[in-house]
Computed example of a mutant assay.
Amino acid sequence: MAKLDETKMKTIKYWDAGAPAYRWNQLVPELTAQKFEVALRMPSAWMNMAIYDATVLAWREKAKYQRKRPHQVDPSLKPAINAPQTFSYPCEHTVTAAAAAHVLAYFFPAKADSILQLGRAAAQSRIDAGVQFPSDVEAGWKLGEEVAKQVIEKAKQDGSATVWKGEMNKDPKKWTGKYPVGINLVSYVPLVLKSASQFRPPAPPDFAADMKEMKEFKQTFKSAATAYFWANSGDLWTDLAGKKMFEYRLQDDAPAAARIYCVLSTGYHDAAIAIMDAKYAYWGVRPNQYDSTYKPLISTPPFPGYPSGHAAAASTSCGILSYFFPADAEHFRKLAKDCADSRFYAGIHFRSDNEVGLAMGRELGRYVVETLMQKQGSVSLKSWKGK
Rank of each mutant, 00 (worst) to 15 (best):
A224S: 10
D206G: 11
E213V: 11
A274C: 05
P255R: 06
A313P: 06
N232F: 12
A271H: 00
H310A: 00
T266C: 12
K215I: 05
N184T: 15
F217V: 04
G267N: 02
A272E: 13
G309W: 00
C262N: 10
G182T: 13
M214V: 13
I260E: 02
L191E: 00
F221Y: 12
F229M: 10
A257G: 15
D235R: 14
K218C: 04
T238A: 08
F246W: 13
L240R: 14
T238N: 09
E213K: 13
K212R: 13
V263T: 08
P296F: 01
Y228D: 05
Q198H: 10
S197I: 10
L250A: 01
A209R: 11
T220F: 02
K215V: 09
P304Y: 07
S195Q: 10
A208D: 10
P287A: 05
P190M: 03
N184V: 15
M211K: 11
S195T: 13
G284S: 12
L250M: 13
K295V: 15
S292G: 08
Y306E: 04
V192L: 12
G267F: 01
F207V: 12
I298G: 01
D291E: 08
K295P: 05
E216A: 15
F199W: 02
K194A: 13
S315D: 04
S315G: 11
A314P: 04
S223T: 08
G284E: 02
V186L: 06
P202L: 13
M214T: 08
